[in-house]
Design a protein around this nucleic acid. Structure first.
Length: 486
RNA sequence: GCUCCCAUCGUCUAGUGGCCUAGGAUGCCGCCCUUUCACGGCGGACACAGGGGUUCGAAUCCCCUUGGGAGUACCA
């Protein structure tokens, strides 16, 4: 942390954490780390009505899990950093101070209009096809009147200058111009004494010496207001970078209605933190090679805002699954894999396997999983009693109709019974010998035994069954299959 | 409606005037491996929204059209 680069992630504590927020946090984090700067976390809790208890704890917890802990701001150990407090609700006096300064310099003014009047005004404007904007009624109030009514309920609005062009210079999008006529006199201070996002955000970014504001594209339009605010307070504007939106499959802004959007949901569904990060990093950013699998350190190393794309990115769950699968089966260690899968196994399964047996089963199933929770589908075959096997499927019927089955199953039963110990190696040996001595081979050997033992056409290598089931159980299964023969 | 942003395979994207008969990944299809499935390997189909310019030359620059998105609160 030696450079003056300071980026921030500024969520509001309204409950769950949207994956889009995580992407924004990630880019801020990567940018700060890449430039040896500081990554700040600030809580934008200026809307008292939307506050949800426990959101901050949850946020901190999730960010920690994702390895995106901040350098400054709230943490499990309290607030750290020299620019606190990092909760906007604890900075009210600061906002008050600058609001007064702005009223005094006429850059802002008190507005006493009722919300009823405002609503009515808007309805009329919409009816006439006009843009909905405040009509500036209270701007004409004299200083004296405004001051004398200061204890009445009111808001404070930005006095947008007339006939000016506001220039927003965005790192990702270039220069964007706005005419001041098109900008509404934004409320800066609400009647409950809390600042709006726009005001608090500008004051804090300045006071916290934020050098780069990296946030979602939904803020691009209001950036004009922010620039006006910086000018009104004679502050230098930070650099802006507006990130492309994360989209639903239908290209609308990624929302809850069309599937999970909370990181917690993905984590609970058995997605790995590093896979999620990797996937999110690639939604809107691309390095200058074809590399697709990145560690966090590699992302830091290669990240740059210049390589962030402009257009929105559809959150493609199929590719997420693929990427998570890459991590699950090829990238993470065996220990980590086992740990994750054990945790994902549904506790409602009724089984008596030992930890070591479960480990074996999970390892045998590893190549089949895209996410940890998938284990529950594949584990089913290990807990379904043979009495419940369903041989009615056409494919299975076909296999069951193979002539050599009766002999095959009897041979298996005898051989297994004769075996001293039973494990995958002996099971394989038994198969080999049957193949050799009785010329039962191919489908007639492998598929028949598979169907007899699992009631399924597909599944893991059969050897694993010999590893985790008793001789009696396997014999019983062959016996059962024999009875079900057509 | 108004303002602003965006536009390469279904999706994520490479491409910054000649290297592009447009590359990678995912998904889909096929083959191989495997006497199952999966993994893995190999191969295939699939895109520069349209129209005008500029230029010797345009996916790349400009304009228009079309399409998509976002914002338009005393929410962030």
């Amino acid at each position: 942390m030696t450079s003056s680069i300071r980026a921030r992630f500024a969520p509001s504590p309204t409950g769950y954490i949207h994956v889009g927020s995580v992407r924004t946090a990630l880019y801020n984090y990567l940018f700060a780390k890449k430039n040896k700067g500081t990554y700040v976390l600030r809580v934008e809790d200026t809307d008292q009505t939307r506050k949800v208890d426990g959101s901050i704890e949850n946020l901190l917890d999730v960010m920690n899990k994702l390895s995106l802990a901040s350098d400054e701001g709230p943490s499990a150990q309290g607030q750290t950093g020299d620019f606190g407090p990092y909760y906007q609700s604890e900075r009210l006096d600061l906002y008050q101070k600058y609001i007064e300064q702005m009223i005094e310099s006429k850059k802002a003014y008190r507005c006493f209009c009722s919300s009823e009047r405002l609503d009515e005004m808007r309805i009329n404007q919409t009816a006439k096809g006009l843009p909905t904007r405040y009509d500036r009624k209270c701007l004409s109030l004299s200083i004296e009147e405004s001051n004398s009514r200061a204890n009445e309920s009111h808001v404070v609005r930005l006095n947008v200058p007339v006939n000016e062009t506001i220039l927003v210079d965005d790192i990702i999008r270039g220069k964007i111009q706005f005419k001041s006529e098109e900008i509404d006199d934004q409320v800066l201070l609400k009647s409950d004494g809390f600042p709006t996002y726009h005001f608090a955000n500008v004051v804090d970014d300045h006071l916290m010496k934020i050098s780069h504001v990296i946030r979602g594209e939904e803020w691009l339009l209001s950036t004009a207001k922010h620039v006006l605010l910086y000018q009104a307070l004679s502050w230098e504007t930070p650099k802006f970078a507006h990130l492309p939106l994360l989209l639903n499959a239908d290209k609308s802004k990624l929302s809850k209605r069309q599937g999970d959007v909370a990181v917690e949901d993905f984590l609970n569904a058995g997605y790995l933190e590093e896979a999620l990060i990797n996937f999110l990093a690639l939604l809107g950013w691309h390095g200058n090679t074809d590399q697709e699998i990145f560690t966090l350190d590699e992302l830091i190393e290669q990240f740059s805002l210049e390589r962030v794309s402009k257009s929105g990115a559809v959150f493609d769950r199929e590719k997420l699954d693929w990427m998570n699968g890459q991590y699950l089966k090829n990238i993470i260690s065996e220990e980590r894999y086992l740990e994750v899968v054990h945790k994902a196994l549904d506790s409602s399964f009724d089984h008596s396997f030992t930890k070591a047996q479960l480990d074996k089963i999970f390892l045998a199933l590893r190549s089949k999983l895209d996410k940890a929770k998938d284990i529950n589908d594949h584990f089913q075959v290990f807990v379904t009693p043979f009495a419940e096997f369903d041989y009615s499927g056409t494919d299975i019927q076909e296999v069951m109709a193979i002539e050599s089955n009766e002999l095959l199953f009897s041979l298996f039963m005898d051989e297994i019974d004769d075996a001293e110990t039973l494990d995958s190696a002996t099971f394989k040996k038994i198969m080999k010998s049957i193949q050799k001595e009785h010329k039962i081979k191919g489908k007639a050997l492998f598929m028949s035994s598979r169907v007899a033992l699992t009631g399924q056409m597909h599944g893991p290598d059969l050897g694993i069954l010999a590893d985790v089931f008793t001789k009696e159980e396997l014999i019983a299964r062959f016996d059962n299959a024999k009875l079900k023969l057509p």
